[in-house]
């Protein structure tokens, strides 16, 4: 979360052209893999060879030409389940991130702009959330609400909004006293309009970078909760739940490994994407082509 905190200088308004930051190998891998998963999710019924819920084949068939990733304990095609799993993880990850971003950014913007006692109180609340490991806190929330996918999403929103609040606050704080805000106020722009029109557009870039990086975390947390039996309920082809089943049936490695690789590839892809986005938006690295990013 410290990766994108407070670049004091606002990012210049450059359009996202295909700059050097996007031509690096990791950026290309990130874009390709992430896009690939989005396409798989969108066209899953046409791409998947079988119905993900149909128990048509024999149990625990190893990978073969007919079942590229084998079959699971109920005779379902693992490949089809992995492909359909994207339809659950990806839209939910975007929704999660959008909800946390909106809530966190509103809290952060108010906290940073109003300042004073309100800022103190809100930031102590944020600290409270940071004091617990995300997975523990979300487990507690799901345990309280009851284990299902909707509550898992809610729980992850509850644990992930504070990051956005803190980053937004620090950006708003540094921009609140900037000269362009001061000069706008002198020209008769009201305080609230200055926040919306002068400050927030300058906050958007770094916060979107953070959101992209957090997409991977959202996928991971969601599968984590499902793995622990606190998310998706059984017949749902959710990756975390599938890994969990694979862990119970250890001799049949294909049951858990393939959904695990799916999680790994998409989390990495979102992280590469976030890094590239950050470099592309950062005027200091936009021109320099470096092999790796921090």
């Amino acid at each position: 979360m410290s990766a994108v905190t407070a670049p004091a200088a606002p990012v210049p308004a450059r359009r996202l052209r295909i700059g050097p930051a996007w031509r690096r190998p990791l950026a290309l891998v990130g874009v390709t893999v992430a896009l690939g998963w989005v396409v798989l999710a969108a066209f899953a019924p046409w791409i998947a060879p079988a119905d993900p819920l149909a128990q048509e084949a024999a149990r625990f068939l190893p990978p073969s030409a007919e079942h590229l990733m084998g079959t699971d304990g109920l005779g379902r095609d693992v490949l089809s389940r992995v492909v359909h799993g994207a339809r659950i993880s990806i839209p939910l990850a975007f929704m999660l991130v959008a909800l946390s971003l909106v809530f966190g950014a509103v809290v952060g913007a108010v906290s940073g702009y109003v300042g004073g006692k309100l800022d103190e109180v809100l930031m102590r609340v944020v600290d409270l959330f940071f004091a617990f490991p995300a997975i523990i806190l979300s487990m507690a929330v799901v345990a309280a609400l009851g284990p299902n996918l909707r509550n898992a999403v809610l729980a992850i929103v509850v644990v992930s909004w504070p990051v956005y609040a803190r980053v937004t606050r620090s950006l708003v704080l540094s921009l609140r006293n900037s000269e362009f805000v001061a000069s706008s106020r002198l020209l008769g722009i009201s305080s609230i309009r200055a926040l919306v029109r002068e400050i927030l557009p300058n906050v958007a870039g770094p916060v979107l970078v953070l959101a992209t990086l957090e997409l991977g975390n959202a996928v991971l947390l969601l599968s984590g909760l499902s793995f622990l039996g606190l998310g998706a309920v059984p017949p749902t082809p959710e990756w975390g739940a599938m890994v969990s089943e694979g862990a119970r049936t250890f001799g049949f490695w294909w049951v858990g490994v393939f959904p695990g690789l799916a999680i790994l590839s998409i989390v990495l892809a979102f992280n590469f994407l976030g890094d590239s986005l950050r470099d592309a938006l950062d005027p200091r690295t936009a021109r320099a082509t470096r092999g790796t990013s921090a």
């Binding site: 606002p10 000269e179 305080s191 557009p201």
Partner: peptide, 29 residues
């Protein structure tokens, strides 16, 4: 003094130019 609401029209006749020309314009507008 400049408050939270829009500055009164009379007061707007008192303006200021700042030191840093890179900080006194909004980069996104």
């Amino acid at each position: 003094e400049v408050g939270r609401s829009a500055r009164p029209v009379h007061d707007r006749r008192l303006q200021m130019i700042f030191q840093d020309p890179y900080a006194s314009l909004n980069p996104r507008r």
